[in-house]
Simulated scan of single mutants.
Amino acid sequence: MTPFSKSYKEDDDLELIKESFEGSKGALNKLINRHQRFIYNLALKFVGDRDEAADLTQEVLISLVSKLDKFNGNSSFRTWLYRIVYNQFIDTKRKKVEKSVVSFEEYGDFLDTAYNDEGMTPQEQADNEKLIDWTRNKCLTGALICLDRQQRMVFILGAIFNLKSSIAAEILEVTPENFRKQLQRAKGDLFTFMQDKCGLINVAAPCRCQKKTKGYIQDGIVSPETIQFYRQFTDSIESVVESKNREIDYLITNPYLYLFTQQPYETQKDNEIKSRHILSDPAVMQLFQLS
């Protein structure tokens, strides 16, 4: 379940906020944990690196806690919180993946030329299935990072996590019509690139995951230790996004979105440690009169 699932109850957030200001550390911890995983997965899609996504998540959660007394109920708590998320993501300094992936043109040149000579045998592909998954997810990350930050956030919210345009527009403080236009442009830019380069979408396109993986293995870039995580994840993004868009647009874009929604919906490995760190901050303890 995500904070945008139909079964999610915002009244539970409001009750936890009330209890937090009554001095309940447990309630504040629950409030953090109710949103931490979703924010982390948004951040992971946005910056393309687990460590930097964890740092960005931590920054957002600190903002949530430190600004919670400013929440006045003029909007829903969920809208208020994810405006903080959106603004912090957009304003954060450029991360290392953003610095390495500059544009669709340059990324396309890399896909056209790097590790395209030698493929794997069917047996090698079977033996290295998880490594090939790792390569595919890294490649999708690179393509997503080619979108500018605004387009990227619109695509993550509207396409990958399938938020309704009315909800996403409220978070971004635009009209639903404007959000839909931005989403359509982001889809157009990204899907045109994938159609031209991705062999999973277009058999005539040059890039093959197994070829790239073989090159990465030979150069020591990827190994079984590298993809330890992929043996552990159980949830995909699709499995936690309850509401499916059945419009014609979804039927057209499904082959492209399938690759993104089958990616892991990850759990931040040290989230409890980070939660305790936030709760032990003297300013937080004073604000909520925590003992």
Rank of each mutant, 00 (worst) to 15 (best):
E242D: 09
A53C: 05
C139W: 09
C146W: 02
D281Y: 08
P224N: 14
K93F: 01
Q58R: 15
E242P: 02
D189F: 06
Y82Q: 04
E10V: 03
C207S: 07
L42A: 05
K197G: 06
C198S: 03
E247C: 09
E173S: 14
G142P: 00
E22F: 13
Q150C: 06
D219Y: 08
R276G: 10
E266R: 08
D281Q: 11
K99R: 11
A27T: 10
Y40W: 01
K25G: 07
S280E: 13
K212M: 12
I145P: 02
N72P: 01
R180A: 15
Y40P: 06
N202M: 10
A168R: 04
E15G: 00
R34E: 09
D51Y: 08
A204M: 10
A204V: 11
K99A: 10
S63A: 15
V174E: 11
V203L: 10
S75E: 14
I227A: 08
D270N: 15
A169W: 05
Q151V: 00
F161P: 01
T253K: 12
E225D: 13
D117N: 09
D12N: 10
E106C: 03
R276I: 12
L190V: 07
D13C: 02
L14N: 07
K211M: 10
S280Q: 15
S76N: 08
I62D: 13
R94Q: 10
Y258E: 14
E118P: 00
F110A: 11
T141R: 10
C139V: 15
K18M: 08
K187M: 06
Q151M: 05
L68Q: 06
P224Q: 13
T253D: 15
T113V: 06
Q151T: 07
D219H: 15
E118R: 10
N128M: 04
T192R: 11
L14R: 08
D196P: 04
Q210L: 01
W134Q: 08
D11P: 00
F229Q: 10
R185N: 13
P3N: 06
N74Y: 11
D112E: 15
R276Y: 08
